[in-house]
Design a binder for these strands. Structure first.
Length: 485
RNA sequence: GGCACCAUGGCGGAGUGGUGACGCAGCGGACUGCAAAUCCGCGUACCCCGGUUCGAUUCCGGGUGGUGCCUCCA
């Protein structure tokens, strides 16, 4: 059980050793809740979810503290509230709820804590006060800025050197003129649209970065084990978090490991609102099972760009169908009760412990699937229709555990293959199909060729009719059943 | 201008100094009236040029091509 992670801070893979094995601290930058989360947000969440599961497996479920915040104070939220004529809290409550529902549908485990920025304003004010007292920040007309020239390590995470940073073109209104250095960033700014809190340095609201520093310290401590987020957050957000936290806490380290996931893009290019190719998770969930979306998100290494296409989803669905056939077959062989005792196979888990290599893990899973059907087929060819205990122990058991470990195979196979379709009607048509076939076989035996052909044609007609409705008939030794495509 | 990253079969995508995972699609065969599912088998894939080496897709150098960040963004 040796977890290695690529640490963005050092730019290489490192063996992960927690500060305290009884309390692993994991922080993930959560969403700003002003609209629906999109599939790119989902990727970031699913990647951390897998890391969370791996950590829980190694150190025990009670020893990993996973914090994913909700940012519920932000200019975009104020704008959305104004636009929709809703109170701020109405907007934030609504989209925070939807975010959590969407991630639950993707089978992401809930974080241990989900702090809200507005519940930590006092912590932010305290931290800003400390930075001012220590001379790392300065006030200017109701604003408080962090002075990057006071922090020597500024730029270490992103690899940027202060002198190479281009000045931003889209900093907040009136901020540029008040800054001492172009790269200084705002910690506190004046009230906007009635959104503000009283503070020693004037009534106002927090800048973007301070909330994470405050929430991390309040919920996890001054030095945490792992901090996650999308690559785009590396600079400036995470860089600024490090600067604030280290200076306020008088520490040289803020997060020991930085884990950044790459972007998810559309085949038409970068996902962006101006291109109109942003896909909300919610929309996808209307067309695809959450497990299909989850698998699609895990079909590339988290540090590689993932191109999101319809084909990727189709492929993921096909792959999951294969896994559910394993369960379906096992159930039909009477192995369902056994599967509850599924246990881990450390050999497989070690593949994912190598910097969250989900691909190699899935490869192992597929090999188990192939072995399962191979062994079952071998037995059946020998006329044995009861599976051996060894198939259960060495194949099915690890297969079920591994799939569950990654957050798959939650559904019943019946439910998976039939979904919400019109069960009674299709059951009836499949019975008609089987009757016609049985009669055709009987007619064939009695040598009535004309009747044989006619009955087979009748059964074929039923099959084609169902096919046009997206239903496929599968015929086994005990009669036929159906599934949706 | 600065800083990173990537280049594998039809597609997606791991990995390794020495018989090139895995998935999807495809092909051949078994089974089957047909179909589906399953099983068995198949495909001479590692951007180019040098170097190191007995041997490189894997290491080093150069080139070409692509991407990201430096500005709100997962």
């Amino acid at each position: 059980m040796k977890l290695t992670l690529y640490n963005s801070l050092t730019r290489r893979k490192e063996l992960f050793e927690p500060q305290n094995p009884a309390r692993i601290t994991l922080y993930n930058c959560g969403p700003t809740v002003y609209s629906h989360a999109h599939i790119g947000n989902a990727r970031a969440a699913v990647v951390v979810d897998v890391l969370f599961r791996v950590l829980r497996h190694i150190y025990g479920g009670d020893h990993v503290v996973y914090v994913r915040n909700i940012t519920d104070v932000d200019d975009k939220i104020i704008a959305a509230a104004t636009e929709q004529g809703m109170p701020i809290s109405g907007i934030t409550e609504k989209y925070a709820r939807i975010y959590n529902e969407d991630l639950a549908a993707l089978n992401c485990l809930p974080p241990t804590h989900q702090p809200r920025a507005t519940d930590h304003i006092s912590h932010m004010i305290g931290m800003i006060g400390t930075l001012l007292d220590k001379g790392f920040a300065y006030e200017a007309d109701g604003h408080v800025f962090f002075d990057v020239s006071t922090y020597d390590d500024y730029g270490k995470l992103s690899g940027n050197r202060l002198e190479n940073l281009r000045s931003g073109d889209r900093i907040g209104e009136g901020e540029a003129a008040r800054k001492r250095n172009e790269a200084d960033f705002v910690l506190w700014k004046p009230e906007l649209g009635g959104v503000g809190w009283d503070a020693p340095f004037g009534r106002g609201r927090p800048g973007w970065h301070i909330e994470c520093s405050a929430m991390v310290r309040a919920t996890l401590g001054e030095v945490i084990d792992i901090h996650c987020g999308g690559v785009d957050l590396k600079f400036p957000h995470h860089e600024n978090e490090i600067a604030q936290s280290c200076c306020a806490n008088n520490r040289t380290t803020f997060a020991r490991f930085w884990v950044h996931n790459e972007f998810l893009n559309m085949d038409s290019g970068k996902m962006s609102k101006s291109l109109g190719n942003v896909i909300p998770i919610r929309d996808l969930l209307g067309d695809w099972d959450g497990e299909v979306i989850r698998l699609a998100l895990l079909k590339a290494h988290y540090r590689s760009e993932l191109i999101w296409t319809e084909d990727l989803l189709r492929e993921s669905k096909a792959q999951l169908d294969g896994w559910y056939r394993v369960i379906e077959k096992a159930v039909s062989l009477g192995m369902d009760r056994d599967m509850r005792d599924a246990r881990p196979d450390e050999k497989f888990i070690s593949t994912i412990e190598n910097d969250i290599n989900t691909m190699e893990f899935l490869s192992g899973l597929e090999c188990l699937k192939t072995r399962f059907f191979g062994e079952v087929e071998k037995k059946e060819r020998l006329g044995e229709h009861t599976p051996g205990h060894e198939i259960f122990i060495s194949i099915l058991n690890p297969f079920v555990f591994m799939a569950g470990f990654l957050g798959f195979l939650r559904s019943d196979p019946q439910e998976w293959f039939k979904g919400g379709r019109d069960t009674d009607r299709f059951d009836r048509r499949v019975r008609d199909y089987d009757n016609a076939r049985a009669q055709a076989v009987a007619a064939k035996k009695s040598g009535n060729e004309a009747k044989t052909g006619e009955l087979f044609r009748r059964s074929d007609t039923i099959r084609e009719e169902l096919q046009s409705e997206g239903i496929i008939i599968e015929t086994g030794p005990d009669g036929s059943s159906w599934r949706q495509t």
